[in-house]
Amino acid sequence: MAQEGTSRGYTDAGLMCPYSSLTTKELQQNWREEKRQERPRWLLFELPSHRVRETVFSRHVVYEIVIMRSGSFDSHRVSIERRYSDFAKLHQTLLDEFQEELDEILLPKKLLTGNFNPEQLLERRLALQDYIAKLYAKRCVRYSEHFANFFTHQEMKKAHNLLRAGQFTQSLELLQLVLEIQEKLAPWQSPTFMVPTLAALAVCHRDLEKPEEAYESAHRALPAVRRYRLNAMEYHAPLLQMLVDLGYSLGRPVGQMQEELMALRDAERGRVDTRSLKEIVVHKFV
């Protein structure tokens, strides 16, 4: 019997060995794939362009920042625009928290003359690209909420302003951009980092009468909220309520989530947020 079990790919413990029927070549390919997945997906930041933005009262330069994964072709390169003043604000915020770690990292100096000279702008752009790379190389910065917010806060605030104005399609486009950026930054951020974005996406999809997309966004946010309730407690009951409501209309099983919602309200009586998910979302980034 032992020989029969071994020939069928069982270990001495009686468990199936998943690699027993694979050829040496297939084993090597699996091993390489596992090693590739274990490697950290580092990010690269490029500043490929800049432009002069003019308003009635001001004229300033904005720099395009492209964020991409290293190691392979990244088909989901995303970009944002930031002014020099945004870099300066980030630098000061990081210095306040990590003074000693950032002693050797200098923000490129502000141009006092020739602000719109093409050669000086090119030099400034390359210097800012190098600056972001040096910041990212610091572990404390990679894991900093301030660093992540530099790439998402402006877009999140604008998206929520659009949502409050009922412009759900425009809000949705910005929120999807934010989510792509957050997915790239996620390995170094709190597991609840994307919860506000997913909640806002769920609200937009629901108001645009896209219940499937709303359900998927809310459902994706739920595991992090369940596990890290102290960081995202206000979302727990509202997410469950939306999922139960949408689940009924979509014919999804909702019994377990309904029981969870009832148990949560019984256990946390007086402390569970009774607002709807939309009410929570519209008060964010005010």
Rank of each mutant, 00 (worst) to 15 (best):
A232E: 01
V203R: 05
H205W: 12
P211E: 13
A202V: 07
A218L: 12
L208F: 01
A214V: 10
T197N: 13
A224L: 04
C204R: 04
R229Q: 13
P187K: 02
P223Y: 09
A232N: 02
P187Q: 01
H219D: 14
L222H: 02
I181Y: 06
P211A: 07
L222T: 02
L239T: 03
E213L: 15
A186N: 05
N231C: 01
N231Q: 14
Q189M: 14
K184P: 01
A186M: 09
A186H: 05
H205E: 13
C204Q: 02
T192A: 06
V203W: 08
E183V: 01
I181F: 05
A232R: 07
A221V: 07
E216R: 15
R226Y: 12
H236Y: 15
A214P: 07
L201S: 06
W188G: 01
P196E: 07
L185N: 04
A202K: 09
M233H: 10
F193D: 14
H236C: 11
H219K: 13
Y228P: 00
A200S: 15
A218I: 07
R220G: 00
R227I: 05
K210E: 14
C204S: 13
N231D: 10
E209P: 00
V203G: 03
S190N: 01
A202G: 14
L239P: 09
D207F: 10
S217E: 09
Y235M: 08
R229W: 11
I181K: 09
L201P: 04
L201F: 09
R226E: 14
H236Q: 11
L185S: 06
P187I: 02
S190D: 13
E213T: 10
H219E: 13
R226H: 09
P187A: 01
R206C: 08
K210N: 13
Y215R: 09
L185R: 03
L230A: 11
K184H: 03
Y215W: 15
E213D: 15
H236S: 07
P191G: 09
P191M: 10
Y235N: 08
L230E: 13
P187N: 02
E216D: 13
T192F: 06
N231R: 07
P187V: 06
L239C: 04
E234T: 11
K210L: 12
A224W: 08
E213Q: 15
E212P: 00
R229M: 05
A202H: 08
W188H: 01
